[in-house]
Simulated scan of single mutants.
Amino acid sequence: MQVDPRGQRVAAGITALVLVAVLVTGSGVLLAAQAVVFAVGALVGLRYSPYGILFQALIRPRIGPPGELEAAAPPRFAQGVGLAFAVAGVTGYALGADWLGIGATAFALGAAFLNATFGFCLGCEMFLLIRRVIPINRSDREVPV
């Protein structure tokens, strides 16, 4: 599966705005809603994510097709990383450990900001690094000569 990288940057921008709102308001409920968005992207697929649907319906028709596509696996992994931080943050807010909620949200915001602003997907880079260290297929491993 291939995805439009511009959609990923738009989604990261929306995510960053939501996470800033979480930090300003201290709302664990808003962070839980963002966790649902992360879960859909990671578990169901990027095209079914609310921000992906928004991009496909409102933005992509105005800007035309992408010049290139990218593999969906790294951004889906990144959504899973975002989900982990969001769940940690929601747990922190729910248990009264606001420091955990704030810290986890801040880390997720940092990653979303990097992607939205510079096109640098931290979770995607983690995915690629993990793939180099732990190949999925045996055919990915180098065969000794």
Rank of each mutant, 00 (worst) to 15 (best):
V3E: 11
D4S: 10
D4G: 11
D4N: 02
P5R: 12
P5L: 13
R6E: 04
R9C: 09
R9K: 13
V10D: 14
V10N: 05
A11N: 08
A11D: 04
A12Q: 04
I14N: 04
T15R: 09
A16M: 02
A16F: 09
V18D: 00
L23S: 01
V24E: 08
T25H: 05
G26V: 06
G28S: 08
V29R: 12
L30G: 08
L30K: 11
L31N: 03
L31I: 02
L31Q: 06
Q34R: 12
Q34N: 14
Q34H: 14
V36S: 07
V36T: 15
A42C: 13
V44W: 06
V44A: 07
L46I: 03
R47L: 02
R47G: 14
P50Q: 05
P50W: 00
Y51M: 00
Y51K: 01
G52H: 02
I53D: 09
I53V: 14
L54I: 05
F55N: 04
F55K: 00
Q56I: 01
Q56N: 15
L58Q: 08
L58A: 15
I59H: 10
I59Q: 07
R60E: 00
R62S: 15
R62M: 15
R62Q: 15
I63D: 07
I63T: 00
G64H: 14
P66V: 11
L69H: 12
E70C: 08
E70L: 15
A71V: 14
A72L: 06
A73L: 09
A73Y: 13
P74C: 01
F77S: 07
Q79F: 03
G80Q: 01
L83P: 01
L83K: 02
A84H: 11
A86Y: 03
A86T: 14
A86Q: 10
V87F: 05
A88V: 00
A88D: 05
Y93D: 02
A94D: 03
A94L: 06
L95H: 11
A97F: 08
D98V: 07
G101L: 02
I102E: 15
A104N: 07
T105N: 14
L109I: 06
A112M: 02
L114G: 10
L114P: 10
N115G: 09
A116I: 08
A116M: 04
F118K: 10
G119H: 12
G119R: 10
F120R: 14
F120V: 15
C121D: 07
L122N: 08
L122T: 06
G123M: 05
M126C: 11
M126S: 13
F127V: 09
F127R: 12
L129M: 12
R132I: 04
V133T: 06
I136Q: 11
I136M: 13
N137G: 08
N137V: 12
N137W: 15
N137C: 07
R138N: 14
S139D: 09
R141N: 06
E142I: 13
E142C: 12
E142M: 08
E142D: 15
